[in-house]
Amino acid sequence: MSIDSPVAGAAASGHEVGKREMLVASHVTMRFGGLVAVDDVSLTVHTGEIVGLIGPNGAGKTTFFNCLTGLYKPTSGEVRFADRLLPPKPRQVVVAGMARTFQNIRLFPNMTALENVMVGRYCRTSSMAVTSILRGPKYRREEAETRERAVELLEYVGMKGQGGHLARNLPYGDQRRLEIARALATDPQLLLLDEPTAGMNPQETRQAEELIFKIRDSGMAIVVIEHDMRFIFNLCDRVSCLVRGKTLVEGTAAQVQSDPRVIEAYIGSPEGEDGAENA
C-alpha cells in the first residue's frame, strides 16, 4: 500500500469532488435544558471535499460535531452517512467510517505515539480473547498488520521515527498530528477536525495545512472547524458559518468571506462580543 494514501481499501473512490453525498445532516437540533446549542442545522458533505465550519465562540460548532459523531444524541434531526442512518453511538460512527480529532487534544498520554495509532486500528481488527491468548494465526497476522499500518501512518503525518515517544512528551504540533494519524488509523472516509491548528505557530499551521491537503487529495472528505480565517479560506471548498446555533451562511469560501453578515458576526454588531479576538 502506498504511503501517499491513508485511505485503506476505499482509496479507489478517488478524487471525484462533489460527486457523491457522503454525509447528510438534516435539521439537527440539540437542546440542553432550556439552552438550544444547535438549532436546525443542516450540512452536506460530498466525497473528496473539504468543508469548513466557522463561527464565533459558543456558536455550537463543537456541539454540532458531537452530534455528528454520536457523543450526543441530537434532540431532533438525523444524520445520514453514505446513505445509512447513523446511530448516535460513537463507536458505530467510527465503524461506519467517520473519525474525528478533538479541540482540546485527547490523546492517550501514557501510551507511546505508535500505540496511540495502534488503538485507532482497534475497530478494523477483530481478534478477541481466545485467539489473543492462544496467539493464533489471525492474531499474528492482525498484530503485524496493525503495527505496520501504524508505522506507515506516523510517517504519513510526518512523524517518522517518533513512535517510541510517550504522547504526553511530544511537542504540541506533533500531538495534533498524532491525533490525525490516530483518526486515520480507523480507515475513515470522512475526517472531522476540531480546530486542528489551534495554538500553532505560522510554520506549524502551514505544515498542518499541507497535511490536510494531502489527506484530501487521497480522496477523503473532511469537515474542519477553525478560527483561523486565512486557513479556512485557503483550504475549504465550501464554508458554513454558524452563529448562536444557527446556520448563518453557507457557500463557497469566497461567498462566505465577502458576506457582510459573517463579518458582522465576527467583529461588527454589538452582540458579537466574544468572537472577535478569536477570529
Binding site: 457523543l71 465503524v95 492517550f108 495502534m118 482497534y122 481478534s127 489473543s132 491468548i133 492482525e142 480507523t186
Partner: peptide, 27 residues
Amino acid sequence: RLNHSRIGRGWVAIREDEKAAEAMGVN
C-alpha cells in the same frame, strides 16, 4: 497474553481516556 494484545491496548486506552477511546472505535 491479553495484556500484550489488541485487547490489552484497548484496556489501556480506556484507562487513559474513556471518551476518547470510545470515539476512536474501541468497544
